[in-house]
Write a protein that binds this DNA or RNA. Structure first.
Length: 467
RNA sequence: GUCCCCAUCGUCUAGCCUGGUCCAGGACACCGGCCUUUCAAGCCGGCAACGGGGGUUCGAAUCCCCCUGGGGACGCCA
């Protein structure tokens, strides 16, 4: 039975990188029919915030990642960590250290400057437990790491990775304020929760040997590890705020569909032959760790946008219409999810790449008093085109319904003859009169959706705008 | 500085494990054409990569070594 987890710390929003790690965990687990756990690692009291927890949960839900267990909060599990730490202490796998943070910082700087390893010098490692001089002094608990030998593990993505124990530190597992640290809580929780597979960013490779040592000291079975490469920004460094590594939810408000984002994220670092489009179900069927690449990938907004356009075109129009509503609302347009809106979506989905764009394109379908695009107005609403618009309005009177495309075609054809113009010469002025811009769906569709009354009103308004 | 990881078109990647079918395939972007009532979409075509050097082999993108380059980690953060 596979059991995995996503264990973010609520010290920031859920961004693209975290979301992909969560996704890989989720897909891998579901592929193997396992259990996916969500655990919030909030032991950094200073920086953890409830708003971030909200953002993380919200982002995962929106993306379509559902957890089977949790969310667990580490702050609720303090007794467990304390119990385990004191067990290590009692068994000699850990010791109290009285060095102050300032002292350590100094030593670290000095070592680094001299080109050495900035490791703890193990001053307190062999202090007698009842040393009178340490009475009542604040202390931290350090893990007693072996000084020689090596630790190796088989990474599911990279193969065997080996570290020499000399490289490892006697890391702090309990702080002066008696709160536990990451490398310790992560082991205790993963062990207690029965996590079998740990899929995480490769920035954790260095932590793995230390954690394995703790598993062994605690006599818990060591899980399988898989380290996925980090996502990079355009400058090929770790994704950060500079690269727009903001909340995943920002993509939602920018008009992206979770289907597109999930598809894109999955393909970032993973591939299944030449296939580009995957539904969530298909991802679960096809995703597996051995196919995950080893090298970091760069986030490409263009490709995400393309995928989003694809889903806009292929998801049911009714569905898209529903999702468009909040974007219209944000523009002050109260639309209802009716057949008319669906018709609008069907016409705009070929052109828009995001819901936000689509809403902007849809504006004139809901407002008679839109502003004319200045360039379009100057070019197409002129003394020369005025009679065309007048004639068009006149001809429209004879047509019973704007759904009569043949009649409208005939009307335009007639005008092309009268004015010795190409169809575009008639259509563009009409388009600007009806939409306020030179770009829109096919003119017959626009007219049909608008309906006779609105078309007449707009033609009149356009004609009157020409002095 | 030390340790760890990585290395195919501008980007995401297939191929690498199980060498030949790869003068390297797909996708995004870009360029051109077709279609056309605008803009898109769609279709067709084009540009474009195995970091370098040594091996091994009849033969290497594929296996081995070195170099270079890039990234990550060295916290009483996670």
């Amino acid at each position: 039975m596979v059991k995995s987890r996503f264990a973010p710390s609520p010290t920031g929003n859920l961004h693209i990188g975290g979301a992909r790690t969560a996704l890989f965990n989720y897909l891998y687990t579901k592929h193997h029919g396992g259990v996916f756990v969500l655990r919030i690692e909030d032991t950094d009291v200073e920086r953890s915030k409830d708003d971030y927890v909200k953002d993380i949960l919200g982002g995962l839900s929106w993306l379509g990642i559902h957890w089977d267990e949790g969310p667990y909060y580490q702050m609720d599990r303090m007794d467990l960590y304390r119990e385990h730490a004191y067990r290590l202490l009692a068994e000699g796998h850990a010791y109290k250290c009285y060095c102050t943070a300032e002292m350590l910082e100094e030593k670290r700087k000095k070592a680094l400057k001299e080109g050495g390893k900035p490791h703890y010098d193990r001053t307190c490692r062999d202090l007698l437990p009842d040393d009178a001089s340490s009475e009542g002094k604040p202390f931290v608990i350090r893990f007693r790491s072996p000084v020689s030998g090596e630790v190796s593990f088989t990474d599911l993505i990279r193969g065997t990775i080996t570290f020499k124990c000399e490289e490892l530190d006697d890391l702090i597992i309990f702080r002066t304020d008696s709160t536990p640290t990451y490398n310790f809580t992560v082991v205790v929780d993963d062990a207690l929760m029965g996590i079998t597979h740990i899929v995480r960013g490769d920035d954790h490779i260095n932590n793995t040997p230390r954690q394995i040592l703790i598993y062994e000291a605690l006599k818990y079975p060591v899980p399988q590890f898989a380290h996925v490469p980090l996502i990079h920004g355009k400058d090929r460094t770790r994704l950060s705020k500079r690269h727009g590594a903001t909340s995943l939810l920002e993509y939602r408000s920018d008009g992206f569909l979770p289907e597109a984002l999930m598809n894109y994220l999955a393909r970032l670092g993973w591939a299944h032959g030449d296939q580009e489009i995957f539904s969530q179900q298909e991802l679960i069927e096809k995703f597996d760790l051995p196919n995950v690449g080893k090298s970091p990938s760069v986030f490409d907004m263009d490709k995400l946008t393309w995928l989003n356009g694809h889903y806009l075109k292929t998801l049911p129009a009714e569905d898209i219409a529903g999702r468009l509503l909040p974007f219209l609302q944000r523009m002050g347009i109260e639309a209802s999810p009716d057949g008319r809106l669906v018709r609008i979506v069907v016409n705009l989905r070929e052109r828009a790449r995001t819901l936000k764009e689509m809403a902007q394109m849809a504006e004139y379908f809901f407002r008679d008093d839109f502003a004319f695009d200045e360039t379009a107005r100057v070019k197409f609403l002129t003394a020369a085109t005025r009679p065309i618009l007048v004639d068009f309005a006149e001809g429209l009177k004879a047509i019973a319904s704007t759904d009569e495309e043949e009649s409208l075609k005939a009307l335009i054809e007639g005008l092309t003859k009268k004015y010795n113009a190409k169809p575009v010469g008639i259509i563009q002025p009409v388009r600007v009169a009806l939409c306020g811009r030179t770009v829109s769906p096919g003119i017959f569709e626009v007219i049909a959706i608008l309906g006779k009354e609105a078309v007449e009103k707009r033609l009149t308004r356009a004609v009157e705008s020409i002095q």
